[in-house]
Simulated scan of single mutants.
Amino acid sequence: MNVGYTTIMYDSESVATTGISDFAACRYDGVEIGLEKVEALGADTLGSLLDEYDIDLFCVMAGWLNTEEDRQRAVDGAALAGDLGSTFLGILPPPRGVVDDETFAEWLEDICEAAAEAGVTPVVHHHFGAHVEQPEEIRYWLDEGPDNLELLFDTAHYYPYGESVGEGIERFADDIAYVHLKDIDPPAEFEYHIQNLTEGKKDYDSIINCVWAFTDLGRGVIDFGEAVATLDDVDYDGYLTIEIENERNHPLVHAKENMDHLRSVTDR
């Protein structure tokens, strides 16, 4: 399996000036970049950087689907992802309660059709507080969504919902096309905050508590040696991307420490 890193801790300018070179120095194979940053950098600049440092573009992650404008941006982003040679186009479902099932289904159809035309695989990112969140919802949308829609499995976002990460990997083994390795250190009253988001409550305190629970690999509750071993057991041979959100100071240090931790618990 090839290992990548996300650019969440880098703004658009620093992706170009330090980010891609940081990933190469830490011996990452690839990168995931948000669509907004891809647009800001431009295809030529980003493509040249990826070529210079021999870094693959694993995924272009479209933004949250809140509006028709967001849907259209994701549709247009599929072609940009395809032009850059990205393997995946990531789909972030709407926050819970923003749209109904019929609207979300229509948006999925449009985005997945554009992805097919662009030669990229659309992957839905299950996410707490979103329209696709719990295991039963993941199953529903994979079954009812477009035929080319596959799953981005995220270790931290699967953690709260009753099954272990390993059980989740086994449950969705035939659907997982792409993986986020992400750790979580649940705060006090974590289950209360998850329940608020799951019920669609507009509770910003719950959102903040859940977001700030994400942490570097090895500093939370997830056993990544076990997770990767389970992926091996189900014959997953795709990309693993480490996703870090809350450590914006010294991003190179975190990029290296997270790769080091993964290597320490696996044979990667």
Rank of each mutant, 00 (worst) to 15 (best):
M9A: 06
S12L: 08
V15E: 03
A16S: 12
T17A: 13
G19W: 04
S21M: 15
S21D: 09
S21P: 11
A25F: 01
C26M: 15
C26Q: 11
C26A: 15
Y28I: 09
D29C: 07
V31L: 05
L35H: 02
E36P: 06
V38P: 10
G42N: 12
G42I: 11
L46I: 10
S48K: 13
D54S: 13
I55P: 08
D56P: 12
C59K: 08
M61T: 12
M61P: 01
L65A: 03
E69V: 13
D70V: 06
R71K: 13
R73A: 11
R73Q: 06
A74C: 15
V75N: 00
A78W: 00
L80R: 02
L80Q: 05
L84P: 02
L84Y: 02
G85E: 07
L89Q: 06
L89G: 06
P94R: 02
P95L: 07
D100C: 04
D101E: 14
T103F: 00
A105G: 09
L108Q: 04
I111S: 00
C112Q: 02
E113I: 00
E113H: 03
A114S: 05
A115N: 03
T121I: 10
V123D: 01
V124H: 00
V124A: 01
H126F: 03
H131Y: 08
H131E: 07
V132S: 09
V132R: 00
E133H: 09
Q134Y: 12
E136I: 04
E137G: 07
E137Y: 05
E137P: 00
I138R: 01
R139M: 04
N148P: 00
N148C: 05
E150M: 11
D154L: 02
D154V: 05
T155I: 09
T155V: 08
H157V: 11
P160L: 05
G166P: 07
G168F: 06
R171I: 12
D174S: 15
Y178I: 14
Y178P: 12
V179M: 05
K182R: 13
K182A: 10
P186T: 14
A188G: 15
E189Q: 13
F190M: 15
H193G: 11
I194C: 07
I194A: 13
L197H: 11
T198C: 10
G200W: 07
K202I: 10
Y204C: 08
A213Q: 04
G218C: 04
G220C: 07
I222Y: 05
D223F: 01
D223C: 11
F224H: 02
G225D: 05
D232W: 09
D232C: 08
D235V: 02
Y236H: 04
I242V: 15
R248L: 08
H250I: 10
V253H: 15
E257K: 14
E257G: 08
N258K: 06
L262I: 01
V265L: 02
V265H: 05
